[in-house]
């Protein structure tokens, strides 16, 4: 008898929970990219510290997962913002539109992808072509496409150290990996490889020279510290925060510094975005204020707190125009 009462009460708890939720949501929900996550959380916290609104809930679901949740429709069960480490795809925009959601695109800054190793290791000056030769699954040797034969860095170019090629990087599910493939592998792709296989450029070798080190960039940092011959591929903010242990390498002669990425000189950088759901502004409290906080000079400016966290600001003129467009809530595709 006692048990039935307990069971019934548990069911009641569950029911009460769903009933309570029918009331208006007063807290912003944000999903999306794990790369943008550290920046959006900082802004969310600032908004909460103001005391006027509850601190938004920020989930790290990955760019693709975030888009799916975001575009699922309009209403309290769907998130208000999504973070993205790439622009929204046409197919995603179409899905959003089909479900009645109008995304407002806000470009918030840049993220550099760096090649780094332990300070105990040697500093090198790489080119994208050398990186392609070191990491591609198939490369062209004497005009023929063969499985990557390079074992040591010095096999690629005599100026590079005579150590084994050992690169720790993100797995295929990561946005950092997508961006790396797009910005380095595709760009420096050899014509023979492209001719042999349209998708061959983006294929990364699987013979042990490239080690998939998981989504956690801190793990890569720790492994690099332990092995001074290994190189790592990760986001600039991790190099910035671990400047005491790691050194970033020049790519095409340009050093991965804050200034070089901001000016666009450093070749391996990508844009970061947040998308707001226009239909939710004014319904969920604090959305306009969240956008205003994100696009304020104190946050995303050259000396704002997001720059301290490793976000590379947009050029001054672009910041002004993006902030303007964000304030006006200019929806995409309308």
């Amino acid at each position: 008898m006692k048990k039935t009462i307990l069971t019934a009460s548990a069911a009641a708890v569950a029911l009460a929970a769903s009933a309570g939720y029918a009331a208006a949501r007063d807290q912003i929900q944000i999903v999306g990219s794990s790369t943008v996550f550290p920046f959006t959380t900082a802004v969310a916290e600032k908004l909460g510290q103001g005391g006027q609104f509850k601190t938004p809930v920020v989930e790290s679901t990955g760019t693709g997962g975030g888009m799916k949740l975001f575009c699922a429709g309009v209403g309290e069960n769907t998130p208000d913002f999504t973070n993205a480490s790439r622009p929204m795809k046409d197919s995603e925009l179409a899905e959003c539109k089909a479900n009645g959601a109008t995304p407002v695109e806000i470009k918030v800054g840049f993220d550099g992808i760096v090649i780094a190793n332990s300070k105990a290791g040697s500093a090198v000056d790489l080119t994208k072509e050398q990186l392609f030769k070191a990491l591609a699954k198939n490369v062209a040797v004497d005009g023929k496409v063969v499985a990557n034969p390079y074992v040591n860095w010095s096999d690629i170019d005599a100026s590079l150290p005579a150590t084994k090629i050992e690169v720790l990087g993100p797995p295929p599910t990561s946005g950092t990996r997508d961006a790396f493939v797009e910005l380095v592998m595709d760009e420096a792709c050899q014509d023979e490889v492209k001719a042999a296989n349209e998708k061959g450029c983006g294929e990364i070798r699987e013979d042990g020279a490239y080690v998939e080190a998981g989504e956690n960039d801190n793990l890569i940092v720790q492994k690099l510290e332990a092995n001074s011959n290994a190189f790592g591929i990760f986001g600039f903010s991790f190099l910035d925060q671990n400047a005491d242990k790691l050194q970033g390498h020049k790519i095409g002669g340009i050093e991965p510094t804050f200034e070089n990425i901001a000016s666009g000189d450093y070749g391996v950088s990508r844009s970061l975005f947040i998308y707001a759901k226009k239909e939710h502004v004014g319904v969920i409290p604090g959305m306009a204020e969240f956008i205003a906080e994100y696009t304020s000079e104190g946050a995303w400016g050259t000396e704002g707190y997001l720059a301290d966290k490793g976000l590379i600001p947009l050029p001054d003129a672009e910041r002004a125009s993006v902030a303007e467009a964000a304030k006006a809530l200019k929806g995409m595709g309308s």
Binding site: V13, S34, A44, E45, T55, V57, E59, S60, N216, D217
Partner: peptide, 26 residues
């Protein structure tokens, strides 16, 4: 998820200890 406010009830957004560890490690 990143949740700053301390949950006051069963329906407030909340996270749990192992998740907090996972996020801090990242």
């Amino acid at each position: 998820a990143f949740i700053v406010d301390i949950p006051g009830g069963f329906t407030d957004p909340a996270t749990i200890l192992p998740v907090q560890i996972f996020m801090w490690a990242d």
